[in-house]
């Protein structure tokens, strides 16, 4: 396979990943790393570098659309980013000491966890009048626009959310993922932020978290321009297609199919990790 053919095939695969990622809200990273390692036999370190760059691209692209709607809670995102960026830097340094098969196993486990979480029924729960002193002092309580007008909400369990964000940052830095599923879990389930606010704020945070470890990966040679090029171009084009084809559709059956595919990929990653093929 020549570089020209290789670039074309990776471009198409990344487009599909970006398309599925934006339709299901799981992001493209979940498909990129398995695609590059399992299908093309690329070293997982190059795959992680390419995935990290793809994550920044999709997050920045989508965030530009989201902030206009005024749903993102900037203060909440910024405060929690202290945790995710610290975690990401730590994760990127840890990556040197973790062997590639350990990373593959960890990646497989995260995939299974995310597939199950993505199937949760998403309910829009709005909580007001929380007594959390910390949330008040940090001005985390806010409001967001809904079809029924502006709705106020309050935030609880700030330390719990902060701690999970630290973990999400470490995973992001270690595996080159956005870890969006975990970020949404921290805000939606633990801090009781409305689901819509959680997803848009998480998306805003993903790019910043990934940028925090990108410099370390660039210097270590994980980010190869020849490989990142078709991945970035493909994922961006795919995400753009996905957002224009199906905006805000509650595609539950689609998510079920995607979760099943991810489960199969996860088992394949685990198998390759345990047999030390990766």
């Amino acid at each position: 396979m020549t570089i020209l053919v290789f670039t074309g095939v990776i471009l198409l695969g990344s487009m599909l990943a970006g398309f599925l990622g934006s339709l299901t809200g799981l992001g493209g990273g979940f498909v990129i790393i398995p695609l590059l390692t399992l299908v093309f036999g690329i070293d997982i370190r190059y795959a992680i570098g390419a995935s990290l760059v793809a994550v920044i691209a999709t997050s920045s692209g989508a965030a530009a659309a989201y902030v206009k709607e005024g749903i993102t809670n900037m203060r909440l995102g910024m405060f929690l980013e202290i945790a995710t960026t610290l975690g990401a830097v730590g994760g990127a340094f840890l990556a040197v000491y973790a062997s590639t098969h350990i990373i593959a196993i960890l990646f497989g486990l995260i995939l299974i966890f995310s597939a199950i979480l993505s199937l949760r029924r998403k309910e829009e729960t709005v909580q007001t009048g929380s007594a959390s002193m910390l949330a008040q002092r940090l001005k985390l309580n806010s409001s967001y626009p809904t079809p029924q007008g502006t709705v106020d909400y309050s935030v609880t369990n700030v330390p719990g959310g902060f701690l999970i964000m630290l973990g999400a940052g470490i995973l992001s830095g270690l595996l080159g993922l956005g870890a969006g599923v975990l970020k949404v879990l921290a805000m939606d389930n633990v801090m009781r932020v409305p689901f819509k606010v959680s997803t848009t704020t998480s998306n805003f945070m993903i790019g910043v978290t990934a940028a925090a470890s990108a410099g370390i990966y660039l210097y270590r040679g994980y980010i190869d321009p020849g490989l990142c090029m078709p991945v970035v171009l493909g994922v961006l084009a795919g995400a753009f297609l996905g957002s224009s084809v199906l905006t805000r559709a509650n595609s539950r059956s689609l998510r079920t199919v995607f979760a099943f595919i991810i489960l199969v990929i996860a088992l394949e990653m685990l198998y390759n990790g345990f047999t030390k093929k990766i």
Binding site: M1, T2, I3, L4, F6, T7, L36, F40, G41, I42, D43, R45, Y46, L218, Y219, R220, G221, I223, D224, P225, G226, L227
Partner: peptide, 21 residues
């Protein structure tokens, strides 16, 4: 310039030969 060459990503080369600074 390089479309006709063979890609080599099976082996990780670290910083050598890539633009990393």
């Amino acid at each position: 310039r390089h479309g006709g060459q063979i890609p080599e990503y099976q082996v990780f080369r670290g910083g050598s030969g890539s633009y990393h600074t």
